[in-house]
């Protein structure tokens, strides 16, 4: 049954196409740039006709950057690895800490629970620099500066509130009676949490985890201040492409493509579960 007129469908199609082009064009352009040399990128006027080359990727992966001023060592692959370690580590930790906490905040009203939850959220409002300065000093004293552990800890400022608040909403949407029906059948609250509440909130947890991963992946300022060269993620590492002899657009583009890839892959993979969760529906009692 389609009672929309042909014109209306055309207009909708055009509008959708515009939106897609608007959002996808920069990515497409970056991909094209990553396959060109600096000379072809910088020629004027720009053109989409060129002979593709993989030399940017090769340079990144081998870690040697050839510039007019000579060869330069870059640590892009280890930066990428650092990004993976930091993002995965902090999301995992945030899930382990945040999901049970979200459940507690959703199910139990205790003294000050609202205040604690709000305080955690307020970490998101504070400018990062506000906490960074004291943290740097403390971390140096504690020996946490420039360790994965210390960085993952600080990344909780980003991930934990996100996961806590999103997942809490999902838990609140589950009728408590569904859990009680299971508990009264002789199951402990822990078994109920694992077998009833967690699966029902699964899509929400996946969404929150994905979002937290993206935020952690894109973080710049914490890593810039607290990490030295060998712990830096790609966001900070990319600064190395701004060299004395100019900006290496080709390599930057290739680096961007490589650093988008994991998030994109994760999003595509998680999407299945997100959609599955939505179609399961009728979680509310």
């Amino acid at each position: 049954m389609d009672h929309r007129s042909l014109l209306e469908r055309w207009l909708r199609g055009i509008a959708l196409a515009l939106v897609v082009v608007f959002f996808m064009f920069p990515i497409l352009w970056i991909v094209l740039m990553s396959l060109q040399t600096n000379e072809t990128i910088l020629r004027s006027p720009p053109s989409v006709v060129f002979t593709p080359t993989l030399q940017n990727y090769a340079a990144l992966i081998s870690g040697r950057l050839e510039t007019e001023a000579g060869a330069l060592d870059i640590a892009f692959m280890s930066n990428l690895m650092n990004s993976v370690i930091l993002s995965v580590g902090s999301v995992a930790l945030a899930l382990v800490l945040g999901v049970p906490a979200a459940y507690a905040f959703a199910r139990h009203r205790f003294r000050g629970s609202e205040d604690i939850a709000f305080t955690l959220l307020s970490f998101r409002f504070a400018p990062p620099l506000l906490v960074l300065l004291p943290l740097t000093l403390y971390f140096q004293d504690l020996g946490l500066a420039d360790t994965y552990f210390g960085l993952i800890w600080v990344y909780q400022l980003i991930c934990l509130p996100l996961i806590l608040w999103i997942v809490r909403g999902y838990f609140e949407d589950i009728s408590p009676d569904i859990e009680l029906a299971y508990r009264i059948a002789g199951h402990s609250w822990w078994a109920t949490f694992r077998r009833i509440a967690l699966p029902l909130a699964g899509p929400g947890i996946a969404a929150a985890g994905l979002l937290a991963f993206i935020f952690a992946w894109n973080n710049f300022i914490f890593a810039l201040v607290l990490a030295s060269a060998d712990k830096q993620p790609v966001t900070v590492g990319a600064l190395a492409f701004v060299t004395a002899s100019g900006i290496q657009y080709g390599q930057i583009a290739a680096a961007v493509v490589l650093s988008i890839a994991p998030t994109l892959a994760l999003a595509l993979w998680a999407q299945r579960y997100l959609v599955e969760g939505l179609s399961l529906g009728a979680v509310k009692g």
């Binding site: 569904i178 029906a181 009264i184 059948a185």
Partner: peptide
């Protein structure tokens, strides 16, 4: 006692069936 240890069965006003 916790609900699990009371040995009581209940049918809920709102049914509370487990969706999955």
């Amino acid at each position: 006692l916790a609900p699990a240890r009371r040995n009581v069965a209940m049918a809920f006003e709102g049914y509370a069936l487990y969706p999955p």
